[in-house]
Design a protein around this nucleic acid. Structure first.
Lengths: 214, 214
DNA sequence: AGACCTCGATACAAGAATGTATTGGATACA
DNA sequence: TGTATCCAATACATTCTTGTATCGAGGTCT
């Protein structure tokens, strides 16, 4: 987690290995991928790997740390953007507003098909690896917090109210997004970007809100 | 798929291996589980395994065939039950009706934590295994068909109309269910049963329908 | 420039997993 | 009872994977 102490070279190597891991995991699964394969994909040898990580689990750990930290930055930036927006006027048309909101919140999260698949793979891996689960759960909860904050803002801005408990609303949206991403990734080549049509989520979100406007 | 030609003994062995596979997959992941481990869990040796399956993929295939055929039977039975109900009266209170419907449709599907996790594991494995994906997709689509049929019935019975396209409605419900099942399975021991509180799904479904009643 | 240090490559040993070929016990059948 | 068949156990050869211990190139500091 603390990359700070590491030399630039080392940081670069680690990050290359992490990226390679994602690519290989998407094809072979986490346990199906040998350390050797990952190193090969990264252009290193196993020597480099074991000099940087104690083993597979530590690579996974580095992967979720890096991924989450990136996602959190994106979410925080989005929160900022929407906070600004709060002060400068009306939402305009509802459809457009929600579409923009959903796109902003969810679509920056993941890009290539490989990343989507690897993310699901990692989720399961952490679920069944006691040493990894607590950290995974912690990092997930940070993301949920941010998303909740975003949704609260947006709802307030739209002068609306959630008609179901907020946690349920959020988990529904993330579930739908996560499934949609996986479906979209299924067909594609690994490095194709995954585009998720926001209309399903928009429609559902719209239906789960009450609008006080007259 | 055609167990018909097999002797009872052979059928029993295969099914034991399939069950053992599910247990082991849930702990080790599909690629993390050695054939040996699966056999050990089943009380057989590798000789039995290779006498029954050509390799890991064929075991997975047998697993999804067996699982799906069971699920389809359940769904068909549920469809029957609801068709009967159509003829014998009013839905009564809406909340109760939807709760019963959701429970009926989704809750019989999966039982233990191990099964939930293994199911997700298998989904990803099939996604990245070209030889398995077509069959997996085919079997999934049968299930979707049944669920769609159920939902159509229920909506009609409740004298309601979906306010978003039916496929979107269904995929939303399955996504929510699937995520809820995984979350519920996460904490538990492998053979504990997973209970999914239907209220989230009920509330959302209710919000996604328009009721023509007066 | 020279000594030091960092970091990845190489070589090696040990262990794990796979798949096959063969064996032996049980069961069905005549 | 004898015999043929089926099916899982055993034994074995091979390949894959892992982790460590060592080496050496390239950079850094004085």
């Amino acid at each position: 987690m603390n990359d700070d102490k590491l030399s630039a070279r080392r940081r670069q190597t680690r990050s290359t290995l992490v990226e390679a891991g994602i690519s290989v995991f998407a094809v072979k699964g986490i346990d199906g991928a040998s350390i050797e394969e990952i190193c090969e994909a990264a252009g290193f040898t196993r020597g480099a790997f074991y000099s940087n990580f104690s083993g597979r689990d530590e690579l996974i750990l580095a992967t979720i740390e890096s991924r989450t930290s990136h996602d959190l930055d994106m979410l925080d930036a989005t929160i900022e953007r929407w906070r600004d927006r709060l002060s400068c006027g009306q939402p305009g048309d509802l459809e457009g507003f929600l579409t923009e909101f959903i796109t902003d919140t969810f679509s920056q999260k993941v890009v290539t098909a490989a990343e989507v698949i690897a993310e699901h793979e990692i989720e399961l891996y952490c679920l069944r690896t006691p040493g990894l689960y607590p950290r995974y759960a912690e990092l997930s909860s940070y993301q949920i917090e941010r998303i909740q904050s975003l949704i609260e803002n947006a709802i307030g801005f739209a002068e609306a109210a959630a008609t179901i408990p907020l946690p349920d609303l959020i988990s529904a949206l993330t579930a739908i997004h996560s499934q949609a991403a996986l479906r979209a990734a299924a067909g594609k080549r690994l490095h194709e970007k995954v585009e998720i049509d926001p209309t399903q989520m928009v429609r559902i979100l719209a239906r789960l809100l009450d609008f006080d406007r007259d």
